[in-house]
Design a protein around this nucleic acid. Structure first.
Lengths: 204, 204
DNA sequence: GCCTTTCTGTAATGATCAATAAATATATCT
DNA sequence: AGATATATTTATTGATCATTACAGAAAGGC
């Protein structure tokens, strides 16, 4: 059944995607409403009618980022048969994604809400929670590898997961300074160089 | 010889230190003039007379950070006799500094200017350049180790330096989410687990 | 003493911020 | 057609931003 009233003249999903790109490049605090409306091709009242406020628009944009760009990066974690290959491909996908010439460098979530005073609390909480969930994803993958008998049971999965997630976060900062794939790939390779030590049996 | 005119009623160095703490916690974009003047205990005209403008105050605060907090963290790099111990102690000093309860978590420089649109270009350039200089410090230490015959000559010092600097940058983000020493130390340990592989002779 | 110089407090500047009021336009429903 | 509902455009709101005019205060030089 069709909607009542005047139909909106823009595509909501397309406008959201454009907003996401602005937040990705400029951050919450650097993305003015003027910049957002210009990129989205709409006026402020249309933005508020469709998305509520800047804060809720950001939260939607973050979810969209997670479900598009984020999904690409994290796909390897579940498709690769072995944990080592899963993490390695995850880091390489990160290096490739963060160095794309046609998108902002680094991750919207990793770089978001790092200065509490500059963003609404809900934004700070949302990105922080998302980063925590990403650590959990890595930990779960490592736990699965233990359950499969692939890794020793006494591997500190929380510590290893935190290490790889933290390397990925650092790659976002590196990507902002030096967006070359080569530099990012060196970091990914460096992190994988720790694999054998981090996943060996802790008993002597 | 004493100065002409009314003497300033506050200690410039103390005011700068307080400004540094505000920028450290809130970032350039989150640190309003109102917050700065409140923390510094002075009014806006005094701030402008003594420091020029917000941008130049930030640049001075960044230098102060580098010469106080930064120096503590990087001291190990030059005092430790061997490269491995130098890097290891550098990362442990980072974990300790970033988890201090009485200071903001993470690094002013690592977290600064990540969103170009939110800060003046000069601020963005200054923090980015500083991050680059930190990579160079690590690389120089590794080169010295090669010169001392401690490491094989074909170690990719730029890549290894970039890896360790990037881990440290990631630790700033982790410290904002979870400021515990334990988590940060796990990451430091994870990075050191890569040492042997990263510094072994590349020839087979 | 007065003059000059510099700093301090108050109050204001114009710019930009996110968010909205009012009027008009375009659709469905009866 | 007329009523209702939603969207759009233009212009505006009050808040906050960094910065500064202005007048009074506190020092040295004469």
């Amino acid at each position: 059944m069709p909607e009542k009233g005047r139909p909106r003249s823009f595509d909501r999903a397309d406008a959201l995607m454009r907003a996401m790109q602005v937040f990705w490049e400029k951050g919450y605090e650097g993305a003015s409403l003027a910049a957002l409306t210009a990129a989205m091709g709409i006026n402020a009242p249309s933005l508020y009618a469709a998305f509520g406020c800047k804060e809720s628009l950001y939260l939607e944009a973050m979810e969209l980022y997670s479900q598009t760009v984020g999904t690409e990066i994290w796909a390897a974690l579940e498709t690769a048969p072995k944990a080592r290959e899963a993490i390695s491909r995850f880091l390489d996908a990160t290096a490739r994604a963060y160095s794309q010439a046609d998108t902002p460098h680094g991750c919207l979530i990793a770089l978001g809400g790092l200065h509490q005073a500059a963003v609404p609390q809900a934004v700070c909480d949302a990105v922080s929670r998302h980063r925590g969930e990403n650590i959990a994803k890595l930990r779960d993958r490592l736990e699965a590898a233990i359950a499969a008998g692939e890794l020793p049971a006494n591997v500190n999965t929380e510590a290893v997961a935190t290490f790889y997630a933290t390397v990925q976060h650092g790659m976002s900062i590196l990507a902002r300074d030096d967006g070359s794939y080569e530099s990012l790939k060196h970091v990914a390779d460096g992190a994988m160089a720790a694999w054998d030590v981090l996943t060996r049996d802790g008993k002597h």
